[in-house]
Write a protein that binds this DNA or RNA. Structure first.
Length: 294
DNA sequence: TCCATTTGACCCCA
DNA sequence: TGGGGTCAAATGGA
């Protein structure tokens, strides 16, 4: 009883601190994006550490507080940053399972046809939102015994296209219904694509080599491309400028994004765009990087 | 029409 | 044996 109240209070404080640090990191990051670098300053590194501590503490609290989570498998804590709860959950596999099936289903009905994997790497985070940078597809929802809220199951959107085996489970926390406990399992082996925010445009002045995109950037009239290391400028491509019409044809862009840190809502994104133009250039790959926060 | 979500069925495994 | 994880048909929205 008493322990529950102090635990709730402690968790609330940690959550508040985590969110404040996240906001601070976002604010600190903006000026650095403008000069063409998406790398963290040393101050940001400190923030990452702070955020990591919050997340770690929250996860530990959750682990201590929940009577039926992770109890038996806590010794298997090989997790990385933010990874404290390696549960015994298992994952689906698309591999054959016909041998072990107890009941022969119809040709189409292969529900439940899977083998669980043991010891898959997983880690748990706590957040006020269920969204993250990755593209997920919900494939199930279950009422959990003795749990107030159902658990939702998500898989990587590109599971079948690219064989990505990442999954996540999301469950609203009983103590704090505004918070969500998300358990990730399996690393993304695909380039998990999300749409860039609509206000993200390209700054033409910074489009030499890797580009930095900021919300204030303008749509370019031309695109300039430096050859990669060891790569020669294609003949007939002096100045290496591409017509803006090519650019328009490719809109909207899609970006691959990864969290800039494990504990914030700031993401680093990039895109590879290959142009086929009429200037005897077989193709030009345009790489761009930017960060945004959600 | 396509795609994501919902939901009941089914299997694994503690 | 039953809770939990996954599948896939049904459903609904864009």
């Amino acid at each position: 009883m008493g322990s529950t109240s102090w635990k709730q209070k402690l968790m609330k404080e940690l959550v508040d601190g985590q969110e404040s640090a996240t906001q601070l990191q976002v604010l600190l990051q903006k000026p650095f994006s403008e000069n063409g670098s998406s790398q963290f300053s040393s101050g940001d590194e400190h923030l990452v550490k702070i955020l990591g501590s919050f997340t770690e503490s929250l996860s530990l609290l959750m682990m201590m507080g929940s009577s039926n989570n992770c109890e038996s498998d806590n010794n298997n804590s090989q997790a990385g940053s933010g990874s404290v709860c390696c549960d015994h959950e298992s994952r689906s596999s698309d591999e054959n399972c016909s041998e072990s099936r107890k009941r022969v289903p119809s040709l189409k009905d292969k529900r439940g046809c899977y083998k669980r994997k043991k010891n898959s790497q997983s880690w748990t985070t706590v957040s006020s939102t269920v969204d993250d940078v990755y593209a997920w597809r919900k494939y199930g929802q279950k009422e959990i015994l003795n749990a107030k809220y159902p658990r939702s199951y998500f898989r990587c959107t590109h599971k079948y296209e690219q064989g990505c085996k990442a999954t996540k489970q999301v469950q609203r926390m009983e103590d704090q219904p505004e918070m969500f406990q998300t358990t990730y399992s399996g690393n993304h082996t695909c380039r998990n694509v999300v749409k860039a925010p609509p206000n993200i445009k390209i700054d033409p002045e910074s489009c030499w080599g890797p580009c930095v995109l900021t919300p204030e950037s303008k749509i370019p009239t031309t695109i300039k491309q430096e050859p990669s290391k060891g790569e020669e400028i294609p003949s007939g491509a002096d100045g290496d400028e591409l017509n803006s019409s090519l650019w328009k044809d490719l809109m909207p862009f899609e970006y691959s994004c990864e969290p800039a840190s494990m504990v914030s809502n700031v993401y680093s994104c990039y895109t590879d765009i290959t142009f086929q133009d009429s200037l005897d250039i077989d193709s030009v790959t345009f790489d761009s990087d930017f960060t945004f926060d959600i």
